[in-house]
Nucleic acid binder design. Structure first.
Length: 571
DNA sequence: GCGGATCAC
DNA sequence: TATGGTGATCCGC
């Protein structure tokens, strides 16, 4: 199993790879209520489960979740989705009543020319690669502790699972599932013979293994981007360029990398140095040997997808998991053949909700359906979503040539980051003093992180999750950023603002709910964003003094000092 | 700018 | 005993 052989098209059981299996009768758009549990569970339909007894798994999950506050909310949300779906259907009907030709003209006039422009911009070669480490977290632990893999195990605890091994997945145990349900699944489906093992997460370990993998992959693309600890986005075009520019006998990895670093001299484009077929062969072999190297040097297996853009490469990387790879050629036909039968849910960016809306309003399940209904899609969805879905329908993504020209100099930090936050879940409580203590702890820890990164946020946000899982947020944007100077009291200010926001939220809540009270909270979070840019022009001395004055005024706002662990008046 | 939603991992 | 944490984006105010 550890051997790197890609059993192409094998594995990946019943999910969307099969066009027919993906097809679901659509006419139940109105009988939402009975289906809600199914719709919630349907999220567990991704990769990994081979001969899993899906029906029994769903039964058990439904039984164990029944009546929980979490599920109650899920049902409530599903009902609201149902209403939205009805209103969309209505809009579609009205459109049809008023014109019976609008689809054709919309395609001819706007959509198809646009899609044709996209097609003409496609890359001519498949050099984008997504490498994805297989069940990364738990695999890291298994390296140190191989016996773990002999039985179902996962990283996480009774509350939440973050990754499971493949033995566990066969019982339906997967990421984002509460651990206690996983335990029941394993117990019942194994007839009591097996038990789910929990392993505590160890992010130091993950970071270190991830860095090992990154170092290897960087030899093939210096500019690769790690999108997360277990996912690398790379472009092997330069590597292939160097490969083909070396005469056949001398092509080894050392020579190629040397050639790569030496030269940015203009070579002819890749597709002129070799035939498409030749490139394909070389690429497949290259990915093979990269994966073998990763395995040999880190002990981890990974899966890879190669295509002419990252959207397709990402999907392809998931196709033959674990320890497999898929190559999708650059031609229009290869792309269509690959994508058409796939569930739209496979596409990064199409989540549970969008999938549901597409299916319930238009009967769209596969990418081919999406293309067939492109006029309806364009009419029904918001501009950004519609544009995105149209691109998906033909498998186009632009993969913006990044490498920020901003020329970030030494600090590659801060420049890109949009926000930083901390949050924590706890036993639901409505005790004001407890909430303040927790909030202060979260905010001060966040303050440290902010400072250590040298960030200067202007916007402070509070996030509150009630015991019934309802989410509330409040933000406050200030004229003057926090943390501009060490020791300027920003940490305390952050805490104070957070507490003030919490009081606002609570006030609004009791206002709205009058008699039925219970501001029961299960999570608090603080977020900093809207960072003052590093390269921003420094304020003049005068300006600076004015700003310093603002800080003073801000801190003396009415309601100050605010209660924290020290002062505890309830509102 | 704000608050709610959605999405990925 | 009972469903996470972090970061990002979009929409309609």
């Amino acid at each position: 199993m550890m051997l790197a052989n890609d059993q192409d098209e094998e594995g990946l059981g019943s999910t969307a790879y099969n066009a027919e299996a993906g097809r679901v009768d659509v006419r139940f758009a109105d009988s939402i209520s009975l289906k809600t549990t199914a719709l919630v569970i349907a999220a567990s339909d991704k990769a990994g489960m081979k001969g899993a007894p899906r029906d029994r798994i769903n039964e058990i999950i439904a039984r164990e979740s029944k009546g929980s506050l979490f599920m109650q909310r899920a049902h409530h949300l599903a009902e609201k989705d149902g209403e939205k779906i009805q209103s969309l259907l209505q809009r579609l009907n009205e459109k049809d009543d008023q014109s019976d030709n609008w689809r054709v003209s919309m395609c001819e006039d706007t959509i198809d020319p646009q899609l044709e422009r996209y097609r003409s911009q496609r890359k001519k070669v498949s050099t984008r690669v997504v490498v994805d480490l297989d069940s990364f977290f738990i695999s890291c632990h298994i390296l140190d502790n191989p016996e773990l893999d002999e039985s179902p195990c996962c990283v996480g605890g009774p509350k939440m699972i973050s990754t499971s091994n493949y033995k566990a997945r066969r019982y339906g145990v997967r990421a984002a599932m509460p651990g206690f349900i996983g335990q029941v699944l394993v117990k019942e489906l194994s007839g009591g013979s097996e038990c789910l093992t929990f392993v505590k997460s160890d992010f130091k370990l993950y970071h270190s293994k991830s860095a090992e993998v990154k170092a290897i992959l960087q030899e093939y693309d210096k500019t690769l981007k790690m999108c997360s600890l277990d996912e690398a986005y790379m472009d092997i075009e330069s590597y292939l360029d160097a490969y083909f520019s070396i005469t056949e006998g001398d092509r080894d990895h050392a020579a190629i990398t040397k050639r790569m670093s030496n030269s940015d001299d203009d070579r002819p484009p890749l597709q002129e140095m070799a035939s498409i077929l030749e490139i394909k062969e070389v690429t497949k072999n290259l990915l093979h040997s990269i994966r073998k190297r990763v395995h040999r040097e880190t002990g981890l297996t990974c899966s890879a997808g190669t295509a002419s853009n990252f959207m397709i490469a990402k999907i392809a990387s998931d196709m033959n998991k674990p320890n497999g790879q898929v190559f999708v050629g650059p031609s229009e036909e290869e792309i269509r053949t690959f994508l058409s039968p796939l569930s739209v849910r496979k596409v990064c960016g199409v989540g549970r909700i969008l999938e549901k809306f597409l299916r319930a309003t238009l009967g769209v399940v596969t990418v081919a359906d999406l293309y067939a209904k492109r006029a309806e899609v364009n009419f029904l969805f918001k501009p950004a979503t519609a544009q995105f879905l149209l691109r998906v329908s033909i498998g186009y993504s632009e993969d913006s040539r990044r490498e920020s020209e901003g020329g970030e100099r030494g600090d590659d930090e801060s420049a890109q980051r949009k926000g930083m936050s901390g949050e924590r879940t706890f036993q639901p409580t409505d005790t004001w003093s407890d909430l303040c203590v927790k909030l202060e702890s979260i905010a001060t820890r966040l303050a440290k992180d902010i400072q250590s990164k040298g960030l200067k946020p202007r916007t402070i946000g509070l996030k509150v999750k009630l015991a019934n899982f309802n989410l509330l947020t409040r933000t406050n944007t200030r004229q003057v950023a926090l943390f501009q100077q060490a020791g300027d009291g920003s940490t305390q200010t952050l805490v104070d603002i957070a507490v003030k926001l919490l009081r606002d939220v609570k006030r609004a809540f009791v206002e709205e709910h009058k008699d039925k009270a219970g501001f029961m909270v299960r999570l608090l979070g603080v977020r900093c964003s809207n960072f003052r840019l590093e390269r921003e022009t420094q304020p003049s001395i005068l300006q600076f003094q004015k700003n310093a004055c603002d800080v003073q005024l801000d801190q003396l706002e009415p309601g100050h000092p605010l209660e924290t662990s020290a002062g505890l008046s309830s509102t």
